[in-house]
Every structure is written in structure tokens, then in C-alpha cells.
């Protein structure tokens, strides 16, 4: 399973979000490859899920992957609720 973590530059926020997502995945015992990307490149990358802030997620809604908007990237519960519930479906 591949998860893209996306922000405007692919440097700051997306890396923080990736670290948070990896921690949540680990606690749920789910194996996945989480990759950081900037918005421009993300459109051309393959993935099963995309996590990003709401305004970035909005710009990726046409992507093949399931796009999940995370409001507060420090909030592990939000990530758990939105992402893990999608994965477990």
C-alpha cells in the first residue's frame, strides 16, 4: 500500500504529516509506504491514498487515489478516524 503525503512545496508540512501517519499506522499494525510530495508532482504519482491539508486535498480531488483531508496534522485521532477507517473498509 502506498500513501502520498502532500503539501505546497513537499518539504515542511507534508513531512510532519508523514511522520504522524507513520506513527498511527504503526500503532494499528498496518504496513504501508508513506511518501512525501509537492502538489505539482503528486498529480503524476501513483498511490492508494493521499493525505493532505483540506485546501491541498481540494486541488487533488481528481486523483485516482482516495484523497483524505486532514485538518490538524498533529491530531493522531483525526488521522485514525479518517484514514484508518478508509483503509479498513
Amino acid at each position: 500500500m502506498k500513501i502520498l503525503s502532500v503539501c505546497g512545496n513537499g518539504l515542511g508540512s507534508s513531512l510532519i504529516l508523514k511522520m504522524a501517519v507513520e506513527k498511527v499506522l504503526k500503532s494499528e499494525d498496518i504496513k504501508a509506504n508513506v511518501v512525501v510530495s509537492d502538489l505539482g508532482n503528486a498529480k503524476g504519482l501513483d498511490a492508494d491514498y493521499i493525505v493532505a491539508s483540506p485546501e491541498i486535498a481540494e486541488r487533488l480531488k481528481d486523483h485516482k487515489a482516495t484523497v483524505i483531508a486532514i485538518k490538524n496534522m498533529m491530531d493522531k485521532n483525526e488521522i485514525k478516524e479518517k484514514l484508518i477507517s478508509q483503509i479498513n473498509q
Binding site: C7, G8, L11, G12, S13, I16, S53, P54, E55, K71, N72, M73, M74
Partner: peptide, 14 residues
Amino acid sequence: KPALDCPIVFPYAP
């Protein structure tokens, strides 16, 4: 406290 990149504040006042 973690100090994070500036887009962290964007969702609070779009």
C-alpha cells in the same frame, strides 16, 4: 512543543 512550517496556520483562517 513541536515548531512547524507556516502552512500549519492556514486552516485557522483561510
